[in-house]
Design a protein around this nucleic acid. Sequence first.
DNA 1: GTCTATAAAAGGATAGAC
DNA 2: GTCTATCCTTTTATAGAC
Lengths: 194, 194
Amino acid sequence: MSPKTKEQFEEIRQRSAAGIMQAALELFAHKGYSGTSISAIAKEAGVSKGLIYNYYASKEALLEAIILGAVEMGDKSFHEGLNPDFSPKEQIHNLIEIGFAMLTKNIQYWKLITSLAFQPGVLDRFKPGILEKGIEELQHLEELFRALGKEKPKQEALFFAAFMDGLALQIMNMGELFPLAEMKAYAIEKFCLS
Amino acid sequence: MSPKTKEQFEEIRQRSAAGIMQAALELFAHKGYSGTSISAIAKEAGVSKGLIYNYYASKEALLEAIILGAVEMGDKSFHEGLNPDFSPKEQIHNLIEIGFAMLTKNIQYWKLITSLAFQPGVLDRFKPGILEKGIEELQHLEELFRALGKEKPKQEALFFAAFMDGLALQIMNMGELFPLAEMKAYAIEKFCLS
DNA sequence: GTCTATAAAAGGATAGAC
DNA sequence: GTCTATCCTTTTATAGAC
């Protein structure tokens, strides 16, 4: 009667845990953390409420798992663009490309992260780490813009970061209405000139 | 025994309703809509739970009152900057000044509005109106940038809007760490040139 | 006009059966 | 590994006293 190996069990566990996480991500991003109930997650994932607690100790632990995944992904993507084999101009170009790609491909993650940024108490524990990564990224940007010959690289870095953040906001809210390709080209034009 | 006139009653009502609304605004902005309970609002406002329902039919009606106030305020501020007596350059300069002033003075409103933008279902009813106002404002901006001689006024308008949105995000998250004055000067420099 | 007490519902979390 | 049933807490909302 279908004897299962350890590996098969492990795979089932993986699938269940991942399915729950995916459902939670979608709902947290869509309705906010507090606005999403465990029942809703269970329904979306097609499992029972009880099963969720088999994989995640609490609703907050589930959130934590999602956050950690998102932060890691974002950080990794950012550093992919920073290959020093390329010229500063090309690196900035890369960052814009990667940024736009992330925004379109993983919009849910950023919707969640951004919305959580507005709910202190929910992810206060992660804020120091996220802020630190942000500052670190700003410094990288500053160096790039300095190498590119911008007169005020520090301001330019903040300017760039603000633009990318605002972009995320607009894409989230305007959806398909947002002229993505046009704006990417314009951003490259704006930021890659010395 | 202190007989009250109709006007006095009305004033008391006003004060209570406004106090509740202010408390709700602060908590909604801080903890999100779903994350804020009626009890918490009552405590913050220094009144009983019951009294809140005397002035607002439901938690959502309270939110609605706040949103309407915020949208009206933002719209009014934007149009204040659009005085056609001034040159395009001066108008854009004004919009930046007003934008920065709003962000620092009424940060709570924008925190709330922005956070709600991420919680569909909560204020879906207002989205069409807000989106329409946004498009209208973009068109105004486009005209201004065209008059200023920008080569791609439409993109520049979106670029400007994205920057201002991102700015709001950064100020909300970085707080006092954000170099406000510097960035305002830099923004003026960037956008007011033909 | 305001408060206290209470009803009615929903949410997070656990225990035990299969 | 998964589900159903249940407990306990919190929440929204109402009713009635002062």
